[in-house]
Design a protein around this nucleic acid. Structure first.
Lengths: 148, 148
DNA sequence: GTCAATGCAAATCGTTTGCATGAAC
DNA sequence: GTTCATGCAAACGATTTGCATTGAC
């Protein structure tokens, strides 16, 4: 398991590379997403920063700016569906994966399936496309919600 | 190939069923989505209605209300990604299908893959989920854009 | 000291809602 | 005639932007 320190180093490198500055805010937001085992939207990230670092009087605009930047440089990823807007998760060493989402309680389960990945590649090639990315979301009702 | 008339009949039935009224606006919006071989967002639908039926002084609110309704009753479907917001397409007899999207020019290609569908079902079951729906989007660069 | 990043508030975008009017039944 | 749908404008929530100030280098 790659640890935060390594990823924070990555952040510093990327920033320097682009002539951008290393700031507390950027580090804090990245760390939150690395350490939480959940998918958060911008509001939630903002709330957590304010809770954990109340001395950081961080603005929502900075949260949005930072999330966009971190996604651009692939340190975090997003999924979006329904009304909840974009939700982010940190990219640790985790393999690429897709999501199953419970439409009743919002629970998210991650999965990875090699066969599907391979088929996607084939399909894209057959259509003359060069894949840059893909997302796949399965919507359903989770066990617990089925029981209720 | 099922034709518009049949789908318009479906619309009438659904509306009556729900104690709702059959209106020109609803029919026009549905027909546009059935006849165009493309994926349109609300603004685009609104623009086309105004172009094709200038005497219909249709409001954007009606477009949104109608699109939401038509999707609810499964006469149209939507995909959403990136900045473009939700895009809609009419449900003719078309099978369920997924999308490959060119991130350079916006071109959308539809595909259907039985293997993937089956794997998705398996994965959901294995995780205790009962599938209600799924979406899959492959992002890439289409042939034409690769050449430029 | 220079230049980029931040916080704040205002602006913007896509979408929804309240309400008086008009159309379907 | 009753009830629902519409158009309009205002409201809304999420996100972005402009700008003066602050902080990293």
């Amino acid at each position: 398991m790659q640890n935060d320190k390594t990823v924070l180093e990555d952040l510093k490198v990327v920033l320097k590379d682009k002539g951008m500055k290393y700031t507390e805010q950027r580090a804090v937001i990245l760390q939150i997403l690395l350490n939480i085992d959940d998918h958060l939207n911008a509001e939630e990230v903002h709330r957590i920063v304010k809770e954990k670092y109340p001395e950081q009087n961080i603005g929502i605009a900075t949260v949005y700016r930072t999330l966009n930047f971190l996604e651009d440089v692939n340190l975090i990823s997003s999924i979006s569906f329904g009304k909840d807007g974009k939700k982010y998760e940190g990219n640790v060493t985790k393999e690429h994966h897709d999501h199953i989402i419970c439409t009743s309680c919002g629970k998210i389960v991650e999965f990875f399936d090699e066969d599907i990945e391979k088929r996607q590649e084939d399909i894209a090639n057959k259509n003359g496309f060069k894949i840059t990315d893909h997302t796949m979301q399965i919507f359903g009702i989770c066990q617990k919600c089925q029981e209720n």
